[in-house]
Simulated scan of single mutants.
Amino acid sequence: MGQSGEIVLVGCGNMGFALLEGWVARSGIAADRIHVVEPAEALRRRVAAAGVEAYADASDLPRTLQPRAVIIAVKPQVIGSMLAAYRRFSATAAFVSIAAGVPIATFEATLGEVAIVRAMPNMPASIGMGVIAAFANAHTGNVQMAYVTDLLAAVGSVHWLPEEKLIDAATAISGSGPAYLFHFIECLTEAGIAVGLPAETAHALAKQTVDGASTLASVSVFSPTELRQQVTSPNGTTAAALDVLMAEPGLAALLKGAAAAAYRRALELAAAG
């Protein structure tokens, strides 16, 4: 990725630190090009241990600093009180928010007509395997989008959306989706115990089966439907199981209902914010 320019990272909790690690370890960004603002002393110590300069407050940042990107990784409820301190970087920086539920309009109200990207990484970003849904406002140029893509790609795959409202739809799939899969592993473990497997074995089989199958689905030239058909022998054990999962109302209907509920709640939270 392009290495020019400096980065200001505001907030270095779990997701912020995942980005920081990704930039240094996977994207090859020099640690001295990154400036972190984090009020919590313990988190600043963690940043310092990674070789990156950390500041307690935006006012401590170098006065000559002209970052190419400002990444906002703080809790949504503090956006209003902290954003104005970064307005001085609007001439050079694209602003990237990973604060859940905060619309771009909130940032534009304080920062003005500047490049702003709203992004939503999911939990596996913490190990560099996340999915990041993103939307850029009209003031974000192609070069800035490419640069932001590179920054976010340090923790996973980036998917640009044509409308901001689709961030809420993405929340229902990739944002909440890991919890669906974790629950599936719980259920598969319980099913293994129910048919006689020791609990430890059932848990290991469930986790490793999901891990292997998801990896295969990611790398295979075959679609998930084709892979399912390949593992399903006519009148065999898998077919018997799928007769249960695919009966009406089956797993597909449950997931559609779950995603719809998550989407509705995302809309409610956005409206409340």
Rank of each mutant, 00 (worst) to 15 (best):
L197V: 11
I193P: 03
A191R: 10
E163F: 06
H139Q: 15
G192F: 01
G192C: 02
L205N: 07
A138N: 15
V221Q: 15
A179F: 08
D211C: 11
V219A: 13
N137I: 01
A179S: 11
N142T: 10
H183F: 14
I193Q: 13
L181F: 11
V131A: 15
A204D: 10
G196Y: 10
L197Q: 10
V195K: 08
L188V: 09
F135T: 01
L181Y: 07
N137A: 05
S220G: 04
V155C: 13
L205F: 11
V155N: 08
K207C: 14
V155R: 09
K207L: 13
L161G: 05
T189S: 12
I173D: 11
A138V: 09
L205M: 14
C187P: 09
D168M: 02
A172V: 01
F184W: 08
D211M: 15
S214Q: 01
V148Q: 00
D168W: 03
V219T: 14
A179M: 06
A170D: 04
A213F: 06
G141R: 02
V158L: 00
A154G: 03
L216P: 10
F184D: 00
A133W: 01
S214G: 08
H159V: 14
M145I: 00
H203F: 12
V143L: 11
A146K: 05
D150W: 00
I173Q: 10
T189E: 11
T171A: 08
A199S: 12
P178M: 06
L151D: 01
V210E: 06
G175N: 08
E190T: 05
V155I: 13
I193C: 12
A153Q: 12
K165F: 09
G192Y: 04
L161R: 00
T140H: 01
T209M: 08
S174H: 04
A213N: 07
L216C: 09
